[in-house]
Amino acid sequence: MDVGPLPQLIVSGILTGLLFALISVGLTLIFGVMDVVNFAHGEFLMLAMYATFGLGLIGLNPILALPVVVVAMFVLGALVYRFFVKRLLAGPPEAVVFGTFGLLVFLQGAAQFFFTSDYRSVLNPPFSGTLHLGGIAIGEAQLAAGLGALVLIAAIFGFVEYTEPGRALRALSEDRVAAQLMGIDVQRMNAFAFGLGIACTGAAGALLMLTYQAYPRIGTEFALTAFVVVALGGFGSVHGVLLGALLVGLVEVLGGYYIAPALKMLPVYALYLAVVFLRPQGLLGRR
């Protein structure tokens, strides 16, 4: 039987999904620890992509730029928590939604104003060839981005699972009050989690620049996908994210091919609605 382009699409969907997972794991970490849905998540990703582009101008390719961008985004995230999100948490419940949404608008406007709406791609991409594996053609850049994302996701899982700060993060998302009573400094851990979540967009942004171009509105596209991923996996569930992201990656790539490229986001949104209506706790989430 001729399966046509299916294997090719599946590989492409999985590689795309891994990048979604890296972005979404940051979103779900922030949500799990402090109950904040960061509507500006995609805009941080956009900033990271511009930062990678900027480092490319001084000769660093995206892979070399990655650690720099990750550290910078971590610091930025921690500062945004310390000087902005912390205030929102003290306000009325809608303040967090409106506040991070305002951040989205502000960052997008700033990018458009300072960087213009032009598309920017790195001038010195380190990978440009194509690998042929048993009839499947994979762009080296896409493969590097996907594998890079996989390594980093594994590192984050390991960190959350096996280290002391990781345990503190998990404790906070399980039961904030109890964690506090056990001597965990909530404000410090919140800032740390926010920084870590934003650092994930930093890593993803650097990897994305291997294959994508940066422009001011790119964040919204990825953020919407990340919301779907996080809802699928269950808000706050780190493991659910990987499953959700691979599903969404496959749905997007297969939908784009078998339905129509213009309609590729349609099944993704439909999937979100189906999940929240039928299984609001997500595929792996707890009630």
Binding site: F106, L107, Q108, G109, A110
Partner: peptide
């Protein structure tokens, strides 16, 4: 140019 968004944000 996004100045409106910047201000409004």
């Amino acid at each position: 140019r996004g100045f409106d968004l910047l201000l409004y944000g």
